[in-house]
Simulated scan of single mutants.
Amino acid sequence: MNAAGPLRTDDDAGLVAAYLEHVRVGKRLAERTVALYTEDLRKLAGFAREAGVALPQVQMHHVRRWIAQMHSGGRSPRGIALVLSGWRGFYTWLARQGITQHHPVRDVRAPKAGKPLPKALAVDDAVRLAEHTQADDHPGLEARDACITELLYGCGLRIGELVGLDVAASASARGWIDLDAGEAHVLGKGCKRRSVPVGRAALAALRRWLEARTAWAGGDAALFIGQRGQRLTPQHIRVRLKRRSLQAGLTTPVHPHMLRHSFASHVLQSSGDLRAVQELLGHANIGTTQVYTRLDFQHLAQVYDAAHPRARGGPGKS
């Protein structure tokens, strides 16, 4: 009940107003939250009006249909989840008031949000990062960071695989690079070993780093070390790569896994061979690799939008 007397079950506007007064005064919700609830309930009342049904008589099939309309209209799964939360509170309150005997929103869920695409650099940006020279750095640091960049982008290594590399093969080595064969042998997820080809640019960068490394080498067998001879940590590499990307003029700070995504996307764009990319990345399931086909499609869509006469906005435009 409210101060004005019994609520009329045939007055949708009155029910909405009474509920908003309840959350504003009774629950003392912030004005911003009340404003959001107001908008959500106006949308609900509009849907109900179009369907010719009073709010207390709304059924689950109505709610599902309205969710589908919002989703097809471009509303995000997260946005729909927030709307449903507002509707759910409204119908919980109606039930407590004895106005409705059912709850049409209780078991309804928002559409699942699609997994976000992994972030990959444009080819030009990846090449710019790889070719960048940090002139203000110690030559040894520059050689090391350049080699790290080339291996992450040129081989698609995970950061754990990279920091696990040793200078030479041994029974205890988690990974190493065979310069003569041009192959990196790494220990990936699930303790699975795989071999990855190392390109000419990465091999040249590795030779430069090995020459500079001799001045730093201590007792650690690690390929990538700091000036005191200790094996680099993943965090250290993240910081150095971010710094390098900003100095190279890239608008997006780069992290190691972004280079792995860029490697996969660029190889797929050039070859179209999904199975080969799966092997190079060390994915046990090709479904994991298929996300890069979406990146590849985005690239093709951008090329189409930029080049096709029928994609440029109408007659006479070029």
Rank of each mutant, 00 (worst) to 15 (best):
1 M>K: 12
7 L>D: 05
10 D>E: 15
14 G>E: 08
22 H>N: 14
23 V>A: 07
26 G>E: 15
27 K>C: 12
27 K>F: 04
35 A>R: 15
36 L>R: 13
38 T>I: 06
41 L>S: 04
43 K>P: 00
43 K>Q: 14
44 L>P: 01
50 E>L: 10
53 V>W: 04
55 L>Y: 04
57 Q>V: 10
59 Q>H: 10
61 H>N: 13
62 H>N: 15
66 W>R: 09
67 I>W: 00
67 I>F: 00
70 M>F: 02
72 S>N: 12
76 S>G: 05
77 P>M: 01
78 R>M: 06
81 A>E: 07
81 A>L: 03
81 A>C: 03
82 L>V: 11
85 S>T: 12
85 S>Q: 04
90 F>I: 06
93 W>A: 08
93 W>Y: 10
95 A>Y: 00
96 R>L: 11
96 R>M: 09
103 H>F: 02
106 R>L: 13
106 R>Q: 14
107 D>K: 03
108 V>L: 08
115 K>V: 11
120 A>S: 14
122 A>T: 10
122 A>Q: 13
122 A>W: 07
124 D>S: 15
127 V>W: 01
128 R>Y: 01
130 A>Q: 11
131 E>H: 07
138 H>E: 14
139 P>A: 06
140 G>V: 07
141 L>Q: 10
141 L>E: 10
143 A>L: 05
144 R>N: 05
144 R>T: 03
145 D>M: 00
147 C>P: 09
156 G>M: 01
165 L>T: 03
167 V>N: 03
167 V>E: 14
169 A>D: 13
171 A>M: 06
172 S>T: 14
174 R>W: 02
175 G>I: 02
176 W>A: 00
177 I>A: 03
184 A>T: 06
187 L>Y: 03
188 G>W: 00
192 K>W: 06
193 R>K: 12
195 S>K: 12
197 P>S: 08
197 P>E: 08
199 G>H: 05
199 G>L: 07
200 R>T: 14
200 R>M: 05
204 A>Q: 15
211 E>K: 14
212 A>C: 12
214 T>S: 15
219 G>S: 15
220 D>L: 04
231 R>T: 09
233 T>Y: 04
235 Q>W: 02
242 K>Y: 01
242 K>P: 08
244 R>V: 02
249 G>H: 01
250 L>T: 02
250 L>H: 02
252 T>K: 13
253 P>F: 00
254 V>Y: 00
254 V>Q: 01
256 P>C: 05
259 L>K: 09
261 H>T: 12
262 S>Q: 08
262 S>H: 07
268 L>G: 10
269 Q>A: 15
270 S>T: 12
277 V>F: 02
279 E>P: 04
283 H>R: 10
283 H>L: 09
284 A>L: 05
285 N>D: 15
286 I>V: 15
288 T>G: 09
288 T>W: 02
289 T>L: 04
290 Q>K: 08
293 T>V: 09
301 A>M: 10
302 Q>G: 13
303 V>D: 12
303 V>G: 11
305 D>P: 09
305 D>M: 04
306 A>G: 12
308 H>E: 06
311 A>N: 09
312 R>G: 08
317 K>E: 13
317 K>R: 15
318 S>R: 14
